[in-house]
Design a protein around this nucleic acid. Sequence first.
DNA 1: AAATATGATAAAATATTTTTATAATCAAGT
DNA 2: ACTTGATTATAAAAATATTTTATCATATTT
Lengths: 292, 292
Amino acid sequence: MNTRDLEYFIALTEIKNFSKVAYKFKVSQPTITFALQRLERELDSKLILRSRGHNLAITDSGEQLLLHARAIIKHGQLASSEIKHLKDAKLRLGLPPTIEDRYFAVVSTKLKQHGLLNKIEAVELGSAATLTALKNGELDLALLGSINPLAESNITSEEFDRRPFAIYVSKQHRLANGNGVYFKDLKHEDFILFKSGFIHNQVISSMAKRSHFRPNVVFKSSGIHSIINMIRENVGIGFFSTLMSDSNSDVVKVKLLDRDVPQFVTSIVYRESHQFNQLQTEILNQIRAALI
Amino acid sequence: MNTRDLEYFIALTEIKNFSKVAYKFKVSQPTITFALQRLERELDSKLILRSRGHNLAITDSGEQLLLHARAIIKHGQLASSEIKHLKDAKLRLGLPPTIEDRYFAVVSTKLKQHGLLNKIEAVELGSAATLTALKNGELDLALLGSINPLAESNITSEEFDRRPFAIYVSKQHRLANGNGVYFKDLKHEDFILFKSGFIHNQVISSMAKRSHFRPNVVFKSSGIHSIINMIRENVGIGFFSTLMSDSNSDVVKVKLLDRDVPQFVTSIVYRESHQFNQLQTEILNQIRAALI
DNA sequence: AAATATGATAAAATATTTTTATAATCAAGT
DNA sequence: ACTTGATTATAAAAATATTTTATCATATTT
C-alpha cells in the first residue's frame, strides 16, 4: 500500500469527482482511476460507486478504509514533522498564558539549574489551540488546563494540579473582606475576562447559565497581566483558578460558595506516539520534578 | 511513502541485520539498503547507523519513525481485515462467558425479535483475550468486563452496568442466611474459581493479599455452569459480581462487607476506527437498547 | 594478512505508475 | 431520438520506481 493512493482516495471521498481530484494533485485523470483500482484490487472490495453525471457514493468498505487512511496519513505527517524538529535540539513546549503565569516560574528555575532552559521553545496559545498544535505535531509537550481530566485518544496526560475556579477582586472591593460569594450574587459586577479560546470562558458561561444571568463583561484581554492590573485598579473582577500572585495583597481571591464549582485541572500532556530523545527526556523529567 | 519500505524498516529495527531482513522477505540484500535510503531521503534524516560487523543502532529519528510505522502497518492490516469481514454480513461479537451468562439472554431476545440474532458470530474468550482480539480486528464488537472503566487508546467503551463482586454459596452453606461476610473471614473456605485469564482471578488475589491469606482453591474451570453446579452441591464457594441465577434459590449471593469492594464494570466496546455498516449499526443499537 | 561478515553501489532488468489519446457512459436539453 | 457536455475507463506508450545481479568497500575475527 502506498500513501499517495490513500491521499487520492481521501480527496475523492471529499471532492467526489475524479477529474477535480486529479486537478488538485496536478496529475492526469486516469492516475486517479488507476489509484482507486489499485486499492480496490488490494483490498478486494469496491470502495467507491462511480456514476457519470451524479455524485460518487462511498461504500461501507470505503468508509471503513477512509478511517484508516486518515490515520495513516496523519501518522506519516507526524513522523515527518517530529523528525524534522528532533534535529532542532529543542523541545517545543505549549504554554497557555494562565499556566505560564501560575506554574512556569518554578519550572524555569529547575530547568535553568540544569542548563536546560535555553532548550525550550515556548509556544503561547490558548488551551484549545495548544491541544490542536500538539496533536498536529507542532509541539512536543504542553502544559494544559482543562475542566475535566483530559481523555483524548493518542494523548497521554499527567495531572499535576487541580483547583476550583474563584473570583479575584481588588482589595478595595466590597467582597475583599468577606469569606466567599455565591456566583448568583455577582449579577451586578463588572467582569474582566480572557478573550475567547480560553477555557475560563466556557466555565464562566456555564456557571452564569446555571445562575440565570449574563455576566456583564467590561473588557476582554488575552494578557493575564493587563487583566490583573485592571482588577487591582478595581475596574472589574476576574475569574481564575489560582494565580501566582495569590500572595500579592493587591488582588484578593474570593471563594465561590456554590456546590460543584468547576475545577481547573492542569496536566503535562504529550502524544503517545512522540519519541522523546535524551535531551527531551531530561527536560520532561525536570518539569515533572518541578510540578508533580 | 510506501508500506513495504516501512515493513522492511520495522524488521530492520528488530533483526538489526540487512541481509537477514532481506532473507526474511525473500528479496535481495540491496533491496533493503535502497528501501532504507528512500525513507532517509524522504524524511531527510538518518534512521539507522550502519556498521559492518557490529549491530545496527537506531537513531532518535529512527525510534520516532518506528512508532508511527508500527501504527501505519497496524491500520493497514485492520483496514484489510475489517473490509474482508464487512462482506460476511455478520457481526463478530466477543462475549466472555461470565458476561454471556449474565447479560446475553436479554440481548438475544431483543436481537431475535428483530431477526438479527443469526447475524451474530459469537466468539467466547476470556476478557483479556477478547480485548486483544478486538484490537487486532478479529472482532467488531465485544461485551467486556473490567475492574476499572476501560481506558484503552483507539477503543471506545460504553459502560452499561457496574456491580460489586460478591460471594456465592450453596443454600446449605453456613453463610447462606447471614447478611454478609468480610473477606478475611473466608480464610478457611474452599473456593471454586475460573481458570486464569479471567478478571475474577486478579480481583480475588488482590483482595486475598489485602486480607493476608491465600485462598484455598479446590477447583478451577472456565465453564460458569460447572462452577455453579459445584457451588450448589456445596463443594465450595464462588466469587462473581452478579449471576443471571441471582433469583435462583439454590445458590445464594452473600455480600462482601469490606470497604472498597472492587466492582465489575461491564461495557460495550469497539474500535474507534471501526466503521459499522447498516446491519451492524442496527445490531449495535439493539444491544444498546437491551443493556443500557 | 587472510578470511568472513556485512552493507553499499552500478548497471541492467522488472515492475509500477503516469500520461496521452481516445472510448464509453450517463444525464439533460433540444 | 439525437446531440451535447460532463464524467470515468481503457489501451498503449512513456516515465519512474524498485529490485536484482554482480561486484566493491569496510570492519571484525582469526
